[in-house]
Design a binder for these strands. Sequence first.
DNA 1: CGTAGCCTTGAAGGTGATCAATGTTTGTGG
DNA 2: CCACAAACATTGATCACCTTCAAGGCTACG
Lengths: 248, 248
Amino acid sequence: MPPSDTAKSLQGAISEILNFPIFRQCPREKIEALCRSGQVIVSNHRQRVFDFGDPGTYFGIVLGGAYKLSRPTPSGEDSIVHFAAPGDVIAAFIMTQSQPRFPVTATAMGPSRFLKIPRETYLELWRTDVDLIARIQADLSSRMSLLQMQKALNKAPLTAKIASLLMDLVARQGNEGLANEEKDESGLIIPIPLTRKEIADNLGVTTESVIRVMSDWSKEGYVTTNERQISILRPDQLIHFIHGESSN
Amino acid sequence: MPPSDTAKSLQGAISEILNFPIFRQCPREKIEALCRSGQVIVSNHRQRVFDFGDPGTYFGIVLGGAYKLSRPTPSGEDSIVHFAAPGDVIAAFIMTQSQPRFPVTATAMGPSRFLKIPRETYLELWRTDVDLIARIQADLSSRMSLLQMQKALNKAPLTAKIASLLMDLVARQGNEGLANEEKDESGLIIPIPLTRKEIADNLGVTTESVIRVMSDWSKEGYVTTNERQISILRPDQLIHFIHGESSN
DNA sequence: CGTAGCCTTGAAGGTGATCAATGTTTGTGG
DNA sequence: CCACAAACATTGATCACCTTCAAGGCTACG
């Protein structure tokens, strides 16, 4: 890639990042400084960015598309820990360790881009720009909170788990800059292309079980899927499932 | 409590904290400065320190005993998110938020003590002592990692979940200063007084199920319990369960 | 044109939940 | 010090939910 292209994509990255909620009202110079040491990485569908256990020499900010963060289970399958959408920070948590290793595998879901920033830059930020670090921590804090919420649903029926996941994903989109006026027409659109298997791997259940629930909901008209794009037509109904009431 | 007592317990707290692994090789003055603005809180068994949703005006470092961090589930039960042992940091993650609220309820498990440190002190540390903040982050990082590992076990049978929890708890003790030479005699002792219900609430299963598994293991001689003190006699057997092999 | 990934459906089976009853220990107040 | 309540532990029977296994169809992509 010629240097001019790199420069251009970096310029784009800066303005994109400034639009993400966690970096709102952040002085442009700071973001520029952050980006200057970084590099925009473009990924294809299903392409792995790094593997569980690899040396963690950098962290990332998702710019477009999505990445799934997974880790192998003792039984050899994959457990998806998080769906990283634009604005999400990846692997920042381990940067302060002395010999960091990535705690998850990152895989692109559809064509995606992220800003790759070397570990040294992160460590320098601790001294030069504490505010920025605090913003990154805030993102991790919400991830932690999400994990805890999901843990609390362990005992709940599968319908509750799926409904909760879908509602979380649309809620995250809502917080970001996008105008979501399409509510009334086509329902809430989930901003990440999800397969049934990915939902299953995230919830720790089987693909078949997810399919059965989603099929029912499609028949009832609560959701629709095409091209891995899931839309929620009846958020109210899904919320019912989260709170334990079965179908009525 | 007369001021002399407070001073004494603070002195004790300082040396205790210096012995915790995350604060090892930390200059004594820094810890002293940290403690000076704090206060040692003593809790009785089952006493609540703060509730989910309360304004988060302080954070804490567990000195003795243990605290369980839980949050209410949509169905009205309790989900235990973490067992906080001595050396664990509580609620530090939310300190940087502008209007922090405790994301969990903290309840003492047996007689316990923790150092209560006001939020302002934490915020000041960001400017004055980044190293200390990094150490606290490291504790949270390991908590996050633990949550992810547990999530990966979602699909595993109940035996694997319980075995994993018990082994995690003894491993955490091992990392702390205590000499654990009692391995050969009485097995690995779990440093936290756990009820079956607490195990169940942590794993998102029912008390009865936990009891059935633990009873089996007691009969097989893998574990023993008395006075809520659980000992692992056959760690090797428990590890088998984690990796999916059933009983043989 | 064949493979790989994803989606779907059905039947059978098991694991853990639920419900109910009872015993044990701990703590509390008269 | 005893009586009573509350929290914890235990056991059994039944049942629902989700898994497992099997088979087949669809689409994308080299």
